[in-house]
Computed example of a mutant assay.
Amino acid sequence: MAFSLFTSKNRIINLVINDHSIRFLELKQTNPPGAQKWGERLLPPGIISNGKIIDIDSLANILEECIDDWKIQRRSVCFIVPDQLVIIRKVTVPAEIQDDEMKGYLYLELGSSIHLPFEEPFFDFFSLSNNGKTKDLLLFAAPEQHVMEYAELFTSLKLNPIAADISPLALYRLFHGLGLANQNEKLIIVQIDLTHVNLCIFEDSVPVIMRPFSLPFNLDQWDIKRGSVDMLELQFIGDTDEMVIQFEDIFKELLKILDFYRYSLSSEKQDVSRFLLTGDHPMLQAIVNEMKERFEVPVDLLSLDDKLHGKTGSMPANFLLSLGLALKEVK
């Protein structure tokens, strides 16, 4: 699933923009595909909040500088819709509705049989089951206003936005592409970034529930410097008790979504069979270690066995989401 805008295959750039950073990655057209080049820029607080653009002028100025620095002028762009904007819902529709008629039907049902917490959604769907009378769909939706703000920003800077994706699907695409997925698996992707967390449970390759939430972030509590390959390196210098509280909050939310899945969504009351952790949080390994102590379910950290090399050196783990997004262009 991806929110398609229009089609182009001309030297695609993959952008991941969140509350604290801008990252780009260009795919190397090899077999298997790899990363050609990448880069990142830290965003000051207050420009984007909970995925919504707050200061469009400042973001435009920073992005324009990035475009020049990274030499990606006039390129086609795929981008990630911020997790905080995305909703996944299971809906049931009459079986006679054909796929080419589905979007029109769903638009008509918005506000009556289908309720979303925002008007004018930007959405796509994925077909699940069909019993002859009805069929179940997964509806992926986001507020059109906020998604188009990103697309229009790119266009104003002479980039060509061609598609938008969501982070759980991009991460699962990479996970599957690395040959790590198992059949009939109940997997929860735990994506922990510097300013937010996204939890998403997959049944086989289908995301069935997603829960994003924000993390407190104070830039003054972090020491930031450029690493050996010109990537940002952050080290926490604040009160360690505050970080412990953040970790505990993450574990509480994780238990909540696991209980909800166990007793509400899964008809057979099944538990997840594996945790897959990823994200750009500098203390991710410490979280992995703590989860291995707390949970009996296997805990894996998404990583590449062989480091990818491109024009800018070895690809950091912060770019795994960008790489998963880029793999969408590989058919």
Rank of each mutant, 00 (worst) to 15 (best):
L63Q: 01
D19K: 04
G46I: 01
G51Y: 01
I67R: 04
N50R: 08
L63P: 00
N14T: 09
R41K: 15
A60I: 00
V16L: 10
I67G: 04
D19T: 07
I47Y: 06
I54D: 02
Q29K: 14
D19L: 11
L15P: 04
I22H: 06
N31W: 07
N50V: 00
I22T: 02
I62C: 02
N50C: 00
P45T: 04
I56T: 13
I62R: 04
N14S: 11
K28D: 15
I48T: 04
P32Y: 05
L43M: 05
R23D: 04
T30L: 14
P45Y: 00
L15H: 07
F24P: 04
E64S: 15
P33K: 07
I22Q: 03
D57I: 10
E64Q: 15
N50S: 12
N61E: 14
I22P: 08
P33M: 10
E65P: 00
I48G: 03
E40Y: 07
N10T: 12
W38P: 12
G39L: 12
I17Q: 01
L27D: 00
L27H: 01
R23S: 12
G51R: 00
C66W: 05
N14Y: 01
S21A: 13
R41V: 13
F24N: 06
P32A: 08
Q29D: 11
V16E: 15
G46V: 03
N10Q: 14
D55Y: 06
P45F: 00
I62Y: 05
N31I: 14
A60H: 09
A35L: 12
R23Y: 05
G39N: 06
L43P: 05
K37Q: 15
I12A: 05
I48C: 05
Q29W: 05
K37G: 06
N10F: 10
K52M: 11
T30W: 01
N14G: 03
S49Y: 08
K52S: 10
S21W: 01
Q36S: 13
K28G: 13
R23H: 09
Q29P: 01
A60E: 15
P33A: 10
A35Q: 05
K9N: 11
I67Y: 06
T30M: 09
I54S: 03
E65V: 06
K37N: 14
K9I: 02
I54T: 07
